[in-house]
Design a protein around this nucleic acid. Structure first.
Lengths: 201, 201, 201, 201
DNA sequence: ACCAGCGGGACATCCCGTTGCT
DNA sequence: AGCAACGGGATGTCCCGCTGGT
């Protein structure tokens, strides 16, 4: 019974720990959506999360570590979408299109998420690199298959990311409707010089 | 005689004031190029400008006011380029192309300026609006003249600005060479669906 | 068990908090006895209380709040004396006399307290109003009972308070002895035009 | 002619100096009427006087010196009234009465002056001593002539000054009307135990 | 005699990271 | 695991008094 007690207790502790950590993460997410990392304070996070400041330090070293964790969580949300695409879609252009449209749709339906993405695109190097690597892989594939006229893969990635981020900002600032998403996608594909092939969208 | 005295005094005062103010502005520019406004301190600005903190507060209310002033100065650097284009080029597409390429060239040749632009594109609402308004005017013109296939002016502006900013980032981060500028421009024009007309570039 | 824990924790917290708060209050009292509120600094209070500045701000928003708290504590010291009078003495004139003499006796025996009273009589509106209201109630009573010849209650209060404060200053500045207290009281009663009745003092 | 020029110039200089000094004094008066000396700044005085801060330091060493000068000016305003009384009135009680009523009348008709008096009564030792000395002289006279029943001159002075100051506060805070002045005077005379003699009021 | 501008420093405020407790 | 309270220090802000000019 003592065994059970201890195991149970540890289990509860872990649960509790995870729950508290999640609350901090959510609070951090909300604040990081408003302003960049250097401008948020541990006090603010603790208050938003409804915990004591000491508790924050039990879970994170400092605000930067929280920002990193939030960035990682954000990366996951991207990877979910990308994983789907990777499994189901073979054609790199279609895959890119799927992801591009998917990200914008998500931004349109979840403004908090969109704000977070925009803020993190500025700082949070790791997050940026992850997304970029994914897009670049598809584009490099497309380039080597002569599916696009653009030569420079990095330039192509910049075009895709640049339009994506700016349209995301447009969604937030001008409440641009979702009907613009397909137009934006078409524009990006034109920019890349996509050759019609088996283009299904 | 009193007239001359007063005028002279004011003149000297203005000169001195202007000189100190310029030093602060330059220091602020340099710091704002590194990190966003909320993360720079008055102490850092004062030290970089070689003045006392009290002197800073004699010229600006606080760091935000400095950031605004830097933004205004930045706007001017844009307006210079745009004023040239406005006077010499009639065709909206050519004008847009001229400005787009011009901004990227400037970024390539002056990385400090480029960094400042990228940082300010995030904050500094006024600066953004000024640039945006200029671009939108040309695009609206092009749309009404059926020179582009894109319908939504705001989306078109987002495309131009998005690619521009991201390529500027590329110049800074990957030291992208100036040879990419014309490729980027071509891509943007394709994205807008520009119809060949008397397109000379 | 959890209940006990929480209660105990809160209790200890409260104890510690109260102790530190009391130290700050005492330090503030001592400083406010020397000079008016706008002239005392948080640094001085913190040093006098033997705490860090941060701790001060954990307990008070700023010096004004401390001054208010000191005023409240001072009010209590008055109310203690007045409460005794209210319970034991029926006659308004006697009650007033008791309080008047009591305040002066206290001033004579505790110069720090007296200094604090004199300083606070200038600022600290709330403190003043509390004392004034008490005195006025007794005087209004006396007026309606035709126990005094003075008609205007506010004027009567001014007379009582004015003499009281000034004699208190005299105690501090000229080290006026306690033998003057009864003389001062007699003078005030004459000023009010008190009619002998069952006047026992 | 050169002589005349120089003399004239010096004359003008003196005039100008006096005028500027007066402007500073007036501004200081206005500010010192609002809050005690430690809380007013040279910057505020300079702005209120419409002069540069450097000019302030040409006329005064610091704020305390200004406060002293304002106090001196205030003393003069008292002495004017007292000088009249001294010349025209022989009887010490009548003289005291004249001054007491005169001060209150002035307070009622010039609230700025009254505010200044109340503020300075707290600080400004010199000002207080001057007034006190005057009153005490009359009272000592009255005591030695057996015109009052009070024995202790200092206590008597405290009574007079205490009531006077508090009634002045009443005039400011409750806009007490001038009709209370004679009542206040009567009360003070009763407090002192004045024996009817040739009492004219 | 007056002024604009400036250097220096006192002070208020905020916030970080730690401690001791349960 | 979580909390209240605290110490320490970075930073913003204000203001004093000086300087060099006319």
């Amino acid at each position: 019974m003592a065994k059970i007690d201890l195991a149970r207790r540890a289990e509860i502790g872990l649960e509790r720990r995870a729950r508290t950590r999640a609350r901090i993460l959510n609070a951090g997410e909300a604040l990081l959506a408003e302003r960049p990392a250097p401008a948020i304070t541990v006090d603010a996070v603790a208050e938003a999360a409804g915990i004591a400041k000491g508790t924050f330090y039990y879970h994170f070293q400092n605000v930067d570590e929280l920002a990193t964790a939030v960035g990682a969580k954000l990366s996951e949300s991207f990877n979910e979408l990308l994983a789907t695409a990777r499994l189901q879609i073979r054609d790199p252009i279609e895959r890119l299109s799927f992801a591009f449209a998917g990200f914008l749709k998500k931004a349109a339906s979840d403004h908090d998420w969109a704000r977070l993405v925009v803020q993190n695109s500025q700082s949070a190097a790791e997050f940026k690199l992850g997304v970029r690597a994914n897009i670049k892989a598809d584009i490099a594939d497309a380039i080597s298959n002569r599916r696009v006229s653009v030569r420079d893969a990095d330039l192509a990635v910049d075009i895709v990311i640049g339009v994506w981020l700016q349209v995301t900002r447009g969604i937030l600032e001008r409440h641009a409707g979702p009907e613009l998403i397909s137009q934006a996608l078409d524009a990006v594909l034109r920019a890349l010089g996509v050759r019609r092939h088996r283009q299904s969208r």
